[in-house]
């Protein structure tokens, strides 16, 4: 092939792939810019701190923010200890190459690929119908308390969904601890748990935090799992108990966008809500990225 042709094709190839790259970046900028542009001006202190009025055409979205935070808090309490224990098991307690390790790893990887709506079905079929009804039968004499959509079940469903995120991040953090540190602890007479507690976990805290933040971001953004496990469009009160339903930012966007009787009137609130949701997930992801970068830098220079 002649040199000129080769150069032309090189240029073409680079150009095409570069164009693909630019297109993606442009699309992202477009979406974010559009939402920011239309959402920003409706933001106000009142918007963030009051409840909606007049069929979602006035007022604010405080209950949705509260519900999202409450949901994510419960989810974190459930998923972080579970995820950290699982990761510690995989890295420290499991005999190398054992069948259980293989199975747990496979389970984690596959959990990560299960569609969000299937989690929602599971939340309904297991947590609400089975666990909730059982609790009602055992503790409330059959009265309906927990056998219905509730923030507790939604949070547990989300915890299962985000479990892989926490496990993977924690495992990474544990793996990076040098072997010499472990041996130093053992040589001093530490039991395995003492070694994990005094040497590994303190050093893995950054990674665990990163994983938690990513899980929280996912928990705040996914809507499909909470469609039937506890989210509601309008509630007169904030959820105060574990078996209450809750309003949530993502769910609010979904319902408002698809089922609002007067689209134009709710548009400003809708855009502003989307903006708040985006800002929330963006801030969370950003802090996770910054944290991860800081950990990497400290690893590179400290050791």
């Amino acid at each position: 092939m002649s040199r000129r042709w080769i150069n032309r094709i090189t240029f073409l190839f680079m150009g095409l792939t570069g164009l693909a790259c630019a297109t993606v970046i442009l699309l992202v900028a477009l979406i974010l810019g559009h939402i920011a542009y239309h959402g920003v001006h409706h933001l106000s202190w009142e918007f963030l701190t009051t409840a909606p009025r007049a069929g979602m055409t006035e007022g604010g979205i405080f209950p949705a923010i509260f519900g999202t935070v409450f949901l994510v808090l419960l989810m974190t309490i459930a998923v972080v200890p579970l995820g950290v224990c699982t990761a510690v098991y995989l890295q420290e307690y499991a005999p190398a190459g054992s069948k259980l390790v293989h199975a747990v790893r496979l389970a984690i990887q596959n959990l990560a690929g299960v569609p969000a709506i299937v989690f929602g079905l599971f939340g309904l079929g297991f947590f609400i119908e089975f666990a909730g009804r059982s609790v009602d039968r055992l503790f409330y004499g059959g009265q309906l308390h927990f056998g219905q959509p509730a923030i507790l079940w939604a949070a547990l469903t989300m915890a299962l969904l985000t479990l892989p995120t926490v496990v993977v991040a924690t495992e990474e953090a544990l793996r990076v601890v040098p072997r010499g540190h472990r041996e130093a602890a053992y040589a001093l007479g530490a039991t395995r748990w003492q070694m994990v507690r005094y040497v590994l976990l303190p050093q893995a805290t950054g990674g665990i935090l990163t994983g938690t933040i990513l899980a929280v971001s996912r928990g705040a953004g996914e809507v499909a799992p909470i469609l039937f496990t506890g989210a509601a469009y309008y509630l007169p009160e904030l959820p105060r108990r574990l078996n209450h339903q809750f309003m949530e930012l993502g769910y609010h966007v979904y319902v408002m966008a698809t089922q609002s009787p007067d689209v134009d009137a709710t548009k400003p609130i809708l855009y502003a809500t989307v903006f708040v949701l985006l800002t929330l997930t963006f801030l969370l992801n950003f802090s996770a990225v910054v944290l991860r970068a800081r950990i990497r830098r400290r690893l590179a220079e400290g050791r």
Binding site: P178, G180, H181, E183, A184, A187, V199, Q203, G302
Partner: peptide, 9 residues
Amino acid sequence: FAVPNPLPM
């Protein structure tokens, strides 16, 4: 040990 392994504390 052959390589000093002080813990990061």
